[in-house]
Nucleic acid binder design. Structure first.
Lengths: 219, 219
DNA sequence: GTGCTCAATGAACGATCGTTAGGGAACCTA
DNA sequence: TAGGTTCCCTAACGATCGTTCATTGAGCAC
């Protein structure tokens, strides 16, 4: 029998769980840069330096990568914001801490934030509903703080729901434009947002100054 | 000769320019709902009730539909906001008018707004650069108003650039959540945003009340 | 060293993608 | 009514998509 000519196999080193991390990193970057549908499994594999079929050892399919990424982001974001809120007592200061942490986390993880927000529609019914439920619950936290601030007289707005949407949108948007090498640091950007949010809610200057000054319980 | 059995041709009525409008309408809806890359030319054609090949009579390709849609939105938005600004004299009131018009237009055309904002990355280099240039110019208009308001002493912020980003993000976001059948009308939502924006910029209550009250020069 | 699991491979599947070729019916103009 | 143009069709192109298949080499337990 004639032996088939030994073709070299381009064997990637066996990296175990590191491979999964490489897939995740590639997915975050490419989904954010080009979008979920514009990113092929082959492009993902190339960025992770494996063959396309190897992805299926770690994930059941393309959508599962997206779901994993979004779930992780929402969980970590929620945990950090809840923790930041817990360090304050007055509603307006809780809101300020939440805004500060929300901005900081979005500035630190802009790609994850962008993918989580913008690729909801890429999900099929079931996981989409689940993610939207988490997002809604997260938003209700902020809404509750706005209402509590109004109730105790420190805040004021002609519509708490609209105000809540506006607050979250401007803070989430930081992920779209913040540049770590720009003139302002993340904590400065966060402070500006605290000022904008509380100002928009009619807080008095002393309260705003106090909220801007307090660095998330670390002071 | 044997005649081939006459198969029925599914002939759509000739609609001329109406067909183009149907393609545009289908594109706005489907691009907004599923995303540009997730929308096939076949899906577009089905929604417009024509065959896929007919699209190429009106557009040179898929990207051209997106470009047309985005250009039209940016042009109309800019025109309306510029006109609204022109009806006021003081910077803070110009800003309020711009915010009001920006919110109104986004509330009226949420799909177009969303597609224009979120599908920039789907464009190839050339049209992407062109759209980004228009968007940046539009943003600079708002930035100029913020700075002018600071210069004349009616507004105040610790960073005009961050404030400008925040203003545009919260107002643009109205396209994401506004529901015409909801409890608030578009002009009410716009008024809330005027209040939030000017409040965030430290305007005094009299100024805010004046800006909220003035319905875009019609009073 | 023998057997088993893990992590990865090359090759191929059917489906769908954007696009094009070529033709024909409807409409306008003269 | 003849001729040209407009509008839309059917059919198919090559490329690429997400995914599956059978297989293989490395490393570990006994």
């Amino acid at each position: 029998m004639v032996e088939a000519p030994e073709r070299e196999r381009a064997v990637a080193p066996r990296r175990g769980r590191e491979t999964r991390a490489a897939i995740d990193a590639a997915a975050v970057e490419l989904f954010a840069q080009r979008g979920y549908h514009a990113t092929s499994m082959r492009a993902l594999a190339a960025a992770a330096e494996i063959q396309p079929a190897a992805i299926y050892h770690w994930y059941p399919g393309k959508e599962a990568i997206l779901v994993h990424l979004q779930d992780e982001f929402m969980a970590e974001l929620t945990e950090r914001v809840v923790a930041a809120m817990a360090e304050q007592d007055r509603p307006a200061l809780k809101l300020a801490a939440a805004v500060r942490e929300h901005v900081a986390y979005h500035g630190e993880h802009p790609d994850e934030a962008f993918v989580t927000d913008s690729e909801i529609r890429a999900l099929r019914e079931r996981p989409r509903r689940a993610l939207i439920a988490k997002r809604d619950e997260y938003q209700r936290m902020f809404g509750g703080l706005v209402r509590a601030g109004i109730a105790d007289g420190s805040l004021r707005t002609s519509d708490p729901d609209v105000a809540t949407y506006a607050i979250l949108l401007q803070c989430t948007g930081v992920a779209l434009w913040f540049d770590p090498s720009g003139p302002l640091g993340l904590d400065e950007v966060a402070a500006v947002h605290v000022e904008l949010v509380l100002g928009g809610l009619g807080a008095d200057r002393k309260l705003i100054a106090a909220a801007v000054a307090a660095p998330g319980g670390r002071g």
